[in-house]
């Protein structure tokens, strides 16, 4: 199956510094992919390149079908009413499901005659996402969709996106620098760090393929696994390793949580867990 989003050797440069370099990844169709990394890691750059807001300096990025994008500040024309915002979407797109959009907004209780500038943060996010979903995109790209939203609005926004994914074949790429936001919603993980791709893969496979080991500080690093990162505090050592099992009884092993996995990689920029591109589409 063709990946919904595929980047090959992607490099983006702002003036002299590289915001993204040599980034090759593929997100299979139907996945909800989390794009995580610290601020300035290149998440927004990757998204902008994917939706055509940036021309890559190197390599390419390809979307199978139509991509819809919601930027971080959820841009809307403040002077437009919600109804006019929908009219804007209808006239700017070839595919448009206006009934579904009107239904969604009605269910959310967002009045159509309200000016976009007068909406609350949560309502604004919902209108922006409604606008994107009404295009019936194959790929929905959301830059920090939950940033600046209160917990209730975060939940509502996530519910809306997940319901759409349940309804039809839709691939989602959403970025966040808060991993806990993504734990229940995403099934694909992409980790960017300082403009480089560190992790790309199925979250369950990744979690199944990594172990957190704890043991006495003087225990030698286990054989047969590759150490992603380690921290030694006083008499105790903690390792994040890929592979396993670890036969050495001095190490106590348990499955890594998503947060531990992400943090482990971000702390060790030299480590990477990247599949061969050929195997990703399967």
């Amino acid at each position: 199956m063709r990946p919904a989003l595929e980047a090959t050797g992607l490099g983006v440069r702002y003036r002299r510094s590289w915001a993204l370099r040599d980034c090759s990844l593929a997100v299979p169709a139907g996945r909800v992919a989390a794009l995580v990394g610290p601020n300035g890691a290149g998440k927004t750059t990757l998204m902008h390149a994917a939706v055509g807001l940036l021309r890559p300096a190197r390599g390419s990025v390809r979307v199978a079908g139509e991509a819809a994008f919601v930027a971080q500040d959820k841009p809307l024309y403040d002077g437009f009413t919600v109804a006019e915002t929908l009219a804007f979407g209808r006239r700017m797109n070839t595919r448009w499901d206006g009934d579904a959009a009107a239904d969604r907004l009605a269910r959310l209780g967002i009045p159509l005659d309200r000016k976009a500038g007068g909406l609350s943060g949560g309502q604004r996010a919902q209108v922006a996402i409604t606008l994107a979903l009404a295009r019936r995109p194959d790929l929905l790209v959301l830059d920090e969709p939950l940033a600046n939203l209160d917990p209730l609005a975060r939940h509502d926004v996530m519910r809306a996106i997940m319901a759409e994914v349940a309804e039809r074949e839709l691939t989602v790429l959403l970025s966040s620098h808060v991993v806990s936001d993504l734990e229940e919603t995403c099934d694909w993980l992409v980790v960017l760090n300082d403009g480089r791709l560190q992790v790309s893969g199925d979250i369950e496979d990744l979690l199944a393929g990594h172990l957190v080991l704890t043991g006495p500080a003087d225990t030698p690093s286990p054989a047969g696994v590759s150490v992603v990162g380690e921290s030694r505090t006083g008499r105790q050592a903690g390792l994040l390793v890929r592979g396993g099992p670890v036969p050495d009884p001095r190490w106590r092993a348990r499955r890594a949580s998503l947060e531990e996995l992400v943090m482990g990689y971000l702390r060790s920029p030299a480590s990477a867990a990247l599949p061969g591109l050929a195997g990703v589409g399967a």
Partner: peptide, 15 residues
Amino acid sequence: ERGTHRLAWTQSVPV
């Protein structure tokens, strides 16, 4: 200034 270029230029209508 308003960031709306990221709305306008990511619709089906090309830039």
